[in-house]
Simulated assay, not measured.
Amino acid sequence: MKTENNKYAKAEMLIRKPVSEVFQAFINPEITRKFWFTKGSGKLEENQKTEWTWEMYGFSLSVTTLVLQENKKIVIEWGNPDETTLVEWTFTPLNENETFVSITNSGFHGDSDKIIDQVRNSTEGFTLVLAGAKAYLEHQLQLNLVLDRFPKGLA
């Protein structure tokens, strides 16, 4: 049996756009708000805090950017102050018009049930984010996937 840390969530997607466009979509809130959160206090910058807001849920959080490598990698720390996790995006250009994006969320805390719940929710959430980014960047479609994940009356 292989022993490795399996306490992480992962979502990946091919986006048929140049790596520079895809990278900008995740650091520039004017683009990101088209498929993920509704407001960002500014572009992601290394060693800086940024506020992200999901107005439809009345929820905001602080994000600290730990690594920002242009067109290659973003690493942030986010979450409740006593339970932060790391999120890492890697951007792999496959050619001049295709980018493979991988998002890994790690560092979950709690008992096994809590960790399983966090991994499942994070995997679902980042899969929707990538699908929304793909639809927006490739076809200028705003699918409202994050908004519709928890419709009013069911949340």
Rank of each mutant, 00 (worst) to 15 (best):
I27N: 01
V22P: 08
V101Q: 00
E30F: 08
L68A: 07
V19A: 03
T53S: 14
Y57M: 13
R16G: 09
E98M: 01
N5T: 11
T90S: 05
I15K: 00
E46I: 14
K43F: 09
Y8V: 10
E88F: 02
M13T: 13
V22S: 09
T53E: 14
V67R: 12
T85I: 11
P93R: 01
T90R: 04
E30A: 08
V67C: 10
I74W: 03
T64Q: 14
Q24R: 12
K73E: 13
E70Y: 12
E96W: 00
T92P: 03
K73C: 10
F35S: 04
V75R: 15
T32Y: 11
K43V: 10
T38E: 09
V87P: 02
I31W: 03
N6P: 04
E12M: 12
R16H: 12
T90V: 04
F23A: 00
W89G: 10
L86G: 07
L14F: 14
V87D: 00
V22K: 04
F37T: 15
K10V: 15
T84L: 02
L66M: 15
S102M: 03
M56D: 13
T65G: 06
I31K: 05
E70I: 08
W52G: 10
K7I: 11
T65M: 05
I74A: 02
T65N: 06
G42P: 15
R33A: 11
G40H: 03
T90G: 03
E46R: 12
V63G: 03
K17E: 05
E30W: 10
E12P: 15
E30H: 12
V22D: 06
